[in-house]
């Protein structure tokens, strides 16, 4: 089994070497008054199709086409190389033709969303593992409901037991909305979260200020709130790991269609870029 670090180093090395060769070849071709537009354009479209085949590979897990992990490695480093190939084809600046702008924008969207997905898939799983229990994404609403029901029961029992409504009131007015709320999507990226932290600090303060019985109940509510907080983090992380594909995959297919149309028109118009 090749270690991940070795695999990444080899992949990066190959991608960088290919990119350097491509740029040297491209520069030599341009300097010798040879057009690279057709070659780089056709190559780019073919590469995008190859990268898209990862999706096909995953749909037929039993096909003898090598491990999906290898396909994923090719997808990642091939995707990085496609950015260099795109630069060689379109140049550094934005194009001026409308259909070319369309293709350019789609490629940039696909490339950047791919980079974003790569980053998220490297960042979030580690955080999820460090966070403790790895919950199944589809079960998260049920877990959230279960925590809410537990907190409701706890607050009701606290009120009945002590005859005071401090715990129940705090739960009803401050905690319940937090427990029932859906997770914030950007939570894994450490954006926002001030209200959540303020609530948890308030809970801790309540625990210290209450009597022994209520303090125990409030302490239990604080534990449930923290579990809910961790659950929100897991939910948001898994949601992010899925949502970037909502951009990457549709944009890829649109890119293939518009890119093919652009190539057809360009070739038919005499190779004009």
């Amino acid at each position: 089994m090749i270690r991940f670090r070795t695999r990444r180093q080899v992949g990066l090395l190959v991608a960088i070497a290919l990119s350097a060769l491509l740029l040297i070849w491209h520069s030599a071709m341009r300097s010798s008054l040879r057009s690279t537009d057709v070659l780089t354009g056709v190559g780019l479209l073919a590469l995008v199709l190859l990268l898209t085949s990862l999706n096909v590979r995953k749909k037929v897990p039993t096909a003898p086409l090598g491990p999906v992990a290898w396909w994923m490695q090719f997808h990642i480093y091939g995707g990085l190389f496609s950015g260099v190939l795109f630069l060689a084809h379109a140049g550094a600046g934005a194009p001026s033709g409308l259909i070319e702008i369309w293709v350019w924008a789609l490629f940039v969207l696909v490339f950047l969303s791919g980079l974003a997905g790569l980053g998220l898939s490297r960042l979030l799983p580690a955080r999820l593992t460090a966070g403790g229990e790895e919950v199944i994404y589809e079960r998260i609403p049920a877990h959230r409901r279960k925590l809410l029901e537990e907190a409701d029961a706890l607050a009701t029992a606290a009120a009945a037991q002590s005859g005071e409504s401090v715990v129940a009131d705090f739960h009803a007015h401050r905690l319940r909305s937090f427990l029932a709320a859906r997770p914030r999507l950007l939570r894994p990226l450490r954006l926002g979260g001030h209200r959540r932290r303020a609530l948890l600090q308030e809970l801790d303060a309540q625990v210290r200020s209450l009597g022994k019985s209520d303090s125990r109940q409030m302490n239990e509510l604080a534990r449930i709130a923290r579990v809910k907080d961790d659950l929100d983090l897991a939910a948001a992380s898994q949601m992010l790991l899925r949502l970037w594909l909502f951009v990457h995959i549709p944009a890829t297919y649109a890119l293939i269609i518009v890119g093919a149309a652009h190539g057809f028109i360009a070739l038919r118009s005499g190779g004009l870029s």
């Binding site: 199944i136 589809e138 925590l147 579990v227």
Partner: peptide, 23 residues
């Protein structure tokens, strides 16, 4: 996370099928 949220086993949890079209 101190609280164990999910149980695994045919008697404790459902078998999730995220690839199904409808939920």
């Amino acid at each position: 996370m101190n609280l164990r949220l999910q149980q695994f086993g045919h008697a404790q949890s459902a078998y999730e099928r995220p690839e199904q079209r409808w939920v």
